[in-house]
Every structure is written in structure tokens, then in C-alpha cells.
């Protein structure tokens, strides 16, 4: 009987997943195939045209979201890797302090943080106002309501999710293995390229997943920091649901986004998760 214990212990988690993930998804899937409106009611028509209509109407925002999410993820990788590297190898006994600092912003709500970024980037705010006062920037310079602001906000909000998994992977690299590389005539650069980087790839993989998916689907940054030309797919879902009450369209968009992300992740996992990259590094 004892061997069943782990399953019993896992049961609450399975139930949780079933009730709060599987059921809503199934319900949404069903809603996405209905027609009608809030006043007359929705009927299950299995009309696939919800999807084709939604994609036709919002393909711009969908593509924009993927581009913003992708660009933000690349920037986070470029910014985050060195930070993770530095904390893992150079921070010494202050490691835990830096990790804490990294998590500190999470003690403030996500929306509030984004709004305060809005203040910071306001046309005549602390940053731009001061710089304009000094004459460093022209008077008509602005950041808010631009692509730069939205991507900047995404980077700012999700960066810790890139750094932490990379840090964990680097932290697990045996320092003796790095020394062995130096001992075997490798320079610093080639030690990084052939040993450290390949061994940290699982962390990079996790970091990219943990940032790209939520950044692409995020509505808050575009809403608070972006303008009318920066609408992302998350905003569309929100509007269709809460403002237009067009549940079928909102559900169809959500599923389309989910499908696109899953396919993207799958391709990405095939490219990076396999031995290919490691094999290239070994040469």
C-alpha cells in the first residue's frame, strides 16, 4: 500500500489542476465555438469562423505581441546573463544579498511597478524633465506611448525571471571543471564558449520560456506605457471580454495565442533542447 502514498499526496495538486486549469480551458474552448451576444445569449454552433475572423481582424496585434515579446526576451537575455554570471561567480559571500535585491521589486504589485515606471518616463517627469531642463534632450522628446516604453517595461518587469534560472544553472557548474579548461590551454573566452555557456544552457532555456510567454501575453505594459499604436494581443483579449463582452472572439484569440506560443516553444525546444548545441560546443 505504501507505494501508493506519493499518489495520494499528489492528489490535491491534481484536483487543483483539473478544477482550475482543465475545466476552464475546456469551457473556454467550448465558448470559442459559439455564436451570439450577451443580450440574446450564446449558442454552441461549432463555428470555426470565430477563429478565422479573429485572426483576420487582429493579426497585426498578434504579430506585434510576438515581436515585442521576442525583442524583450533577447534584451533580457543579453542584460540578464552577465548579471547571473556575476552573482554566481563573483559576488562571493554577498550572493544571497544580491539575489534578495533581485526579488525585492516583487514585494510591490506588478501594476503599481509599471505605473511608477510611467511616472519615471513621463514627458516632464523626474528623468526626462530634468534632462530637458539641462538641455540634454530636445523639448519634444518623449518615451511614453512608444514601442521603446512598452518593450522597456516588459524587460523591466520580467528580467528577474530570466536571471534566476540562469543563475541556478551557473551556480551548479563545478568550478574545478572551469579550472580544468584553463589547465587544458583554453583562454578565458574559449572556456566560456566551450564549457560555461553550454553547461548553463538549461538555465537559458528555462529563462527564455519564463519570460517570453508572459511577456508576449502581457496586457499591462502596453496599457500603461504604450499608446494606441502599441496595442498587444493581451489588450485585445481584455477589451473583447470586459468591454465588448464578445466572449467567443476573446476565447478564440486566447486559444490562437496559446497555440502559437506552444508551437513556438516546441520548435525552440527542438533547436536548443537537443544535443546539437552541446555537440557544437564540444568541438
Amino acid at each position: 500500500m505504501r507505494r501508493w502514498t506519493p499518489y495520494w499526496l499528489a492528489l490535491p495538486a491534481w484536483l487543483w489542476l483539473a478544477i482550475f486549469l482543465v475545466v476552464p480551458i475546456a469551457a473556454m474552448a467550448s465558448v470559442s465555438l459559439t455564436t451570439g451576444n450577451l443580450i440574446d445569449g450564446f449558442t454552441q454552433t461549432f463555428s470555426v469562423s470565430n477563429y478565422s475572423d479573429a485572426i483576420a481582424k487582429y493579426s497585426t496585434q498578434l504579430v506585434r505581441s510576438l515581436v515585442y515579446g521576442g525583442v524583450a526576451t533577447v534584451i533580457m537575455l543579453v542584460l540578464g546573463y552577465p548579471v547571473a554570471y556575476w552573482i554566481a561567480f563573483k559576488a562571493g559571500h554577498r550572493k544571497s544579498m544580491f539575489l534578495f535585491l533581485l526579488l525585492l521589486p516583487f514585494f510591490v504589485s506588478f501594476v503599481l511597478r509599471t505605473i511608477s515606471w510611467g511616472f519615471l518616463l513621463a514627458d516632464d517627469g523626474i528623468l526626462l524633465g530634468t534632462l530637458k531642463g539641462w538641455g540634454v534632450l530636445p523639448q519634444d522628446f518623449h518615451v511614453l506611448a512608444t514601442t521603446v516604453a512598452v518593450i522597456g517595461g516588459l524587460v523591466y518587469n520580467f528580467l528577474p525571471f530570466m536571471i534566476l534560472p540562469i543563475y541556478v544553472a551557473l551556480e551548479r557548474v563545478d568550478p574545478r571543471v572551469i579550472e580544468a579548461s584553463y589547465d587544458l590551454y583554453a583562454s578565458r573566452l574559449s572556456t566560456f564558449r566551450r564549457v560555461v555557456l553550454p553547461l548553463s544552457l538549461p538555465g537559458v532555456f528555462a529563462g527564455v520560456l519564463m519570460t517570453f510567454v508572459p511577456a508576449t501575453a502581457d496586457p499591462i505594459n502596453a496599457q500603461v506605457l504604450g499608446g494606441t499604436s502599441n496595442t498587444m494581443i493581451g489588450n485585445i483579449v481584455q477589451t473583447e471580454y470586459l468591454v465588448n463582452n464578445d466572449y467567443p472572439t476573446a476565447s478564440a484569440i486566447s486559444f490562437t495565442l496559446m497555440a502559437v506560443l506552444l508551437i513556438g516553444i516546441f520548435i525552440y525546444a527542438r533547436a536548443l533542447g537537443t544535443e546539437n548545441v552541446l555537440e557544437a560546443a564540444a568541438r
Binding site: D174, R176, V177, E179, A180, S181, Y182, D183, L184, Y185, A186, S187, V195, P198, L199, L278, A281, A282
Partner: peptide, 17 residues
């Protein structure tokens, strides 16, 4: 990396990948 000697580490330190 510029010394013409090599080391065998106590924990072997083989490249795991």
C-alpha cells in the same frame, strides 16, 4: 593555460557535456 603542465583533479573535473 600558458604552462606546459597538466593536472588531474581529485574530483576528476571531466566536462560533463
Amino acid at each position: 593555460n600558458k604552462r606546459d603542465i597538466n593536472m588531474v583533479f581529485q574530483s576528476y573535473a571531466l566536462f560533463p557535456h
